[in-house]
């Protein structure tokens, strides 16, 4: 599917508003000023997914939640291991970086952060499109990125056409600089048209 340039503009707006909400909530939660920028927004067709994800067996932290409502879909927020460790350490007020594979407190903290991040983007989608969207509670995964994304994609036993991918960079004080995160929205059939239809595109 050829993606119209106007769609990308509209999606960029979603990305920017979502990042704004996320940065504000995260700053409150972590008690430190967090800024968030959106260097890139893409609508990735499935055939290009592999190159968009990069190395498929790279270990990442992923938060996954389902979005119910008028334009249903599935949403994920993906963080690198070092970024996830930094965020968990700040939230738990720890001196050392936690082992996120085993530390349940750290995992629970990340789940909360992921919840805020994903909800921020979902709220941005809601605000701009007027479609009512309701996110579920998140599930946390720490594993190979390809494995986590493929199982989310295939969950209903079919493949969706394309994925909305919003790259974000979070930056805070000190070593919290330049943390990369990616927001993925996998719209159910017809949802992307519904979301963008409101813009008159």
């Amino acid at each position: 599917m050829e993606v119209p340039a106007l769609w990308i503009e509209a999606l960029k707006e979603v990305g920017n508003i979502g990042a704004g909400h996320a940065a504000t909530s995260l700053s409150h939660l972590l008690q430190t000023r967090i800024e968030m920028t959106v260097p890139r927004v893409r609508l990735v067709p499935l055939v290009r997914l592999q190159e968009a994800l990069g190395q498929l067996d790279a270990t990442k932290v992923a938060l996954y939640l389902k979005v119910m409502g008028e334009a249903p879909g599935k949403a994920m927020f993906i963080l690198s291991i070092p970024s996830a460790q930094l965020i968990a350490r700040t939230l738990l007020c720890k001196g050392e970086l936690p082992d996120i594979f085993t530390d349940q407190m750290a995992q629970s903290a990340l789940q909360e952060v992921g919840n805020i991040m994903v909800s921020s983007f979902v709220i941005a989608l809601t605000e701009l499109s007027g479609c009512m969207l309701q996110p579920s509670i998140p599930a946390l995964g720490i594993d190979m990125i390809g494995a986590m994304v493929d199982s989310v994609l295939l969950e209903e036993g079919h493949l969706d056409d394309s994925i909305l991918m919003i790259d974000t960079i979070l930056s805070g004080q000190g070593d919290m600089k330049e943390m990369e995160g990616t927001f993925l929205y996998i719209p159910a059939e017809g949802s992307i048209e519904k979301l963008l239809g409101v813009f008159g595109i």
Binding site: Q55, L56, D57, D143, M144, I145, G146, A147, M148, V149, D150, S151, L154, E155
Partner: peptide, 9 residues
């Protein structure tokens, strides 16, 4: 032969 990151696949 190699394939990376198998989840449900």
């Amino acid at each position: 032969l190699m394939t990376a990151g198998l989840g449900s696949c």
